[in-house]
Simulated assay, not measured.
Amino acid sequence: MTELTTQVENYPLVLHLQPIINLTDDEFFEFCQMNRDLRIERTATGELLIMPPTGTETGGRNFNLIGQLWAWVNQDGTGIGFDSSTGFKLPNGANRSPDAAWVKLERWNALTPELQKKFAPICPEFVVELRSASDNLAPIKTKMQEYIDNGALLGFLIDRKNRQVYIYRAGVAVECLDNPANVSGDSVLPGFVLDLGKIW
């Protein structure tokens, strides 16, 4: 007996559900809970984006990134940090899960406890996406711009493959840094400097 295995080289896998299926926010949340081994996002037009769990190498580098952000958040005290398993519902209706994010404390506290428990209807002020080996760059750039268009003030897209960092800021053209040693949080995260040594 021969077993046929199909390997998907590039993610995300896109599922088109509408107009046949139109998941409510609660149904989408439950769908994600039933499929915890997958990273699932939803576009503003209702497509589901299915991604496998992060590979070990990328996961380790993301852990380092989260650790650096946690240290700053813990010292600064003006907001809350989130890891890559956190989903946010953006104002345009998309559900996104950045690799790291930060939200100002007053905006977070303005949400009800019920809204905080699921995919909070809020766009973080700061987001980071770390490109893994299986990721296409173009969709990540589109997602980064979506964050900015929905209220994010600052975003880092870290492209390890090309050793570049794209910096997204509200109202400013995207800046691309070649092989930087670190990148600053600017005025959005005063004093936060991401050391890229262990992330490269």
Rank of each mutant, 00 (worst) to 15 (best):
P113I: 00
A71E: 13
A120D: 02
Q75L: 12
Y11R: 11
L130Q: 09
P113S: 00
V172S: 07
D76V: 04
T112C: 02
I199V: 09
I167H: 01
C176R: 13
F119Y: 10
A110L: 07
A120L: 04
G185C: 08
T58G: 01
K104T: 06
R39Y: 03
P139G: 00
I167Y: 04
C123D: 01
N136Q: 15
E125S: 15
G46S: 05
V193C: 07
P124G: 06
I158E: 01
I199G: 04
E125H: 08
Q116A: 05
E47I: 06
N109T: 13
T58K: 06
T78K: 10
N64Q: 15
E30N: 14
V172D: 12
N179M: 13
N182T: 15
F156G: 01
P190I: 01
Y166P: 09
I20M: 10
T86D: 03
L137S: 11
L48S: 03
F28H: 03
P121G: 00
N74I: 12
A170H: 08
P124K: 02
L23T: 07
P139C: 00
N109F: 10
V174N: 05
R160I: 09
I50V: 13
S187C: 12
N182M: 15
E27Y: 07
R163L: 14
T43G: 07
G155I: 03
N109Y: 11
K198E: 14
E57T: 14
V172R: 09
E9A: 11
V8C: 11
L38N: 06
P12N: 05
S132N: 07
A71K: 14
K104Q: 12
I80C: 09
L15F: 08
I140F: 06
C176P: 05
G67V: 04
R36T: 12
T112D: 08
M51L: 12
A120E: 01
G171T: 05
W72D: 02
L111P: 01
R96Y: 03
S134I: 15
T2C: 11
E27R: 10
A71M: 14
N182D: 15
D178I: 11
V128K: 00
V188G: 08
L48T: 02
I199D: 04
G55K: 11
M51A: 13
I40Y: 01
P190G: 07
M51V: 09
Q33E: 15
D25W: 11
A152R: 00
C32T: 11
I167E: 04
D135E: 09
N10L: 10
L157R: 00
R131V: 11
E106N: 13
P190E: 06
T2I: 14
K104A: 10
R39F: 06
I66D: 08
V8D: 07
I122H: 04
N22W: 12
S97R: 09
T56Q: 13
K198T: 11
Q68A: 12
E41G: 05
E27V: 10
G55L: 11
D195I: 04
V8N: 11
Q7P: 00
L49R: 07
T6L: 15
D195Q: 08
Q68P: 05
I122E: 02
V127C: 10
I40A: 03
W108T: 06
W70H: 13
R163N: 15
E3K: 14
G93P: 08
F192Q: 02
K118C: 07
Q7Y: 15
K104E: 10
D76M: 01
K143Y: 03
L23P: 09
P12S: 02
R39I: 04
R107G: 05
N92W: 02
D99W: 01
Q145G: 13
Q7D: 10
